[in-house]
Design a protein around this nucleic acid. Structure first.
Lengths: 120, 120
DNA sequence: TTGACATGAAACCTTAGGGTGTCATATACT
DNA sequence: AGTATATGACACCCTAAGGTTTCATGTCAA
């Protein structure tokens, strides 16, 4: 048995599926996609308390969906979209169950816009 | 008699995000993708009781992810992948962040007017 | 009809989860 | 130094969620 609390930022302690289950957390992700924000600024967009928001931020961070960066006395959070890939992979499994015609087109589109931009 | 139960199969009572948050339920979806199955057969693959499995099935059904069909004395469940589209749409929003050459540029622009304001 | 099987419903238990308020600490401002 | 700001850590609360057991109902097989 290896317990030893192995949670070195890399292996999410929190399941992504569970992390995005809460509407508030999805709103947070959406909000933090465009720009990095400190906790107080973030929580001004919610009706719940700052502490509650902070907890959600923690959960998302534990899931690897946010990165935190201390700037002076504030902690700024930003979207880290990588773990969403797991979701995407999970969803991809069910592609075959959708309408197959649409699926074929969809894959085609995805594959063609995913392989470029290899500069700078 | 139709008693106007405000949940006519179409508008899920249960959020898809929440429905898939539970690992057991994801396993159920996976299991019921290939073939329709009755409850007892399904629950034989789980360590929890049949009743517990039944509850999960109910939740998934309420989320529109499963359809149930009575055959004799058994109720067979089958995957209904349609609601997963909502997930896919949600994920699609974050596509722009995955390939983030463009995002890096964006951040650079943003940071030049905001985040470096603190001078030593 | 009687009995076995399949399942949902109801009552209940326990824990996790989302929320609040208070406090401690670190940084910034003057 | 002294105060205000930003935030995380705690200690709690309350409800929802996952789980179990028991019971009722419906269907199949003799």
């Amino acid at each position: 048995m290896e317990q030893a609390k192995p949670n070195p930022d890399n292996k999410p302690a929190m399941d992504v599926f569970q992390a995005i289950a809460d509407p508030s957390r999805r709103k947070l992700l959406e909000m933090l996609g465009d720009e990095e924000m400190p906790v107080t600024a973030i929580s001004s967009h919610f009706s719940m308390t700052r502490t509650a928001v902070s907890k959600h931020l923690r959960i998302l961070t534990d899931a690897g969906l946010l990165t935190e960066r201390k700037v002076g006395r504030e902690t700024r959070y930003r979207l880290e979209p990588a773990p969403l890939q797991e979701l995407k992979r999970w969803l991809a499994y069910y592609d075959r169950f959708w309408d197959n015609k649409m699926l074929a087109l969809q894959r085609y589109v995805e594959s063609s816009d995913d392989s470029q931009t290899s500069s700078s």
